[in-house]
Simulated assay, not measured.
Amino acid sequence: MDESGKLIAIIGDEDTVTGFLLAGVGHRTVNTTNFLVVKNDTTVSQIEDAFNRLTARDDIAIVLINQHVANEIRHLLGSYSKTIPTVLEIPSKDVPYDPEQDYIMQRINMMLGAGQS
């Protein structure tokens, strides 16, 4: 797929995913979708599987993930090193964004030497 046809994927709570789907971000084929709605009964392994599946696709440029969901798979995010698809943590309606938990912000701070004496 050429660069102009790349998709945005979403892993998040129902309100976040619904909002992005209503904005036209959703993509569904016979075999797959570009989103996962995480509910109370969603297991960590289901989130891990969705993350691995979405980041392995060559038609996805960005994976948006609610930060509280990202905390469940922090071990995968810590070892994720690909540039494309880029993984961005976003806040949810019910859980505020904490830049201290965001792995991208942690990497930026490490590169800039923040927190060193």
Results as ranks from 00 to 15, higher is better:
60 I>P: 08
107 R>N: 00
14 E>L: 02
53 R>Y: 09
47 I>G: 10
74 R>Q: 11
105 M>N: 11
37 V>C: 05
3 E>Y: 07
56 A>S: 15
6 K>G: 04
78 G>F: 00
46 Q>M: 09
61 A>Y: 12
98 D>G: 00
36 L>G: 03
98 D>T: 02
81 S>N: 12
21 L>R: 15
109 N>Y: 11
110 M>E: 14
3 E>L: 12
4 S>D: 13
85 P>I: 11
6 K>Q: 14
22 L>V: 01
33 T>W: 00
37 V>G: 04
47 I>M: 09
37 V>H: 07
102 D>W: 07
114 A>G: 03
70 A>W: 09
104 I>V: 15
13 D>N: 12
28 R>N: 04
65 I>Q: 12
50 A>S: 15
111 M>P: 00
15 D>A: 14
43 T>A: 00
68 H>R: 01
94 D>R: 07
26 G>H: 10
92 S>P: 01
39 K>H: 13
14 E>F: 01
112 L>P: 02
91 P>Q: 02
13 D>W: 01
1 M>W: 04
23 A>C: 09
33 T>N: 15
31 N>M: 03
52 N>W: 03
107 R>V: 01
108 I>G: 01
77 L>T: 04
115 G>C: 00
45 S>F: 00
38 V>A: 05
40 N>G: 03
18 T>R: 09
59 D>A: 07
22 L>K: 05
58 D>H: 05
51 F>Q: 02
20 F>P: 03
88 L>F: 10
24 G>Y: 10
4 S>P: 03
97 Y>E: 04
1 M>C: 08
37 V>T: 15
88 L>I: 15
84 I>Q: 10
98 D>I: 07
54 L>C: 11
9 A>W: 05
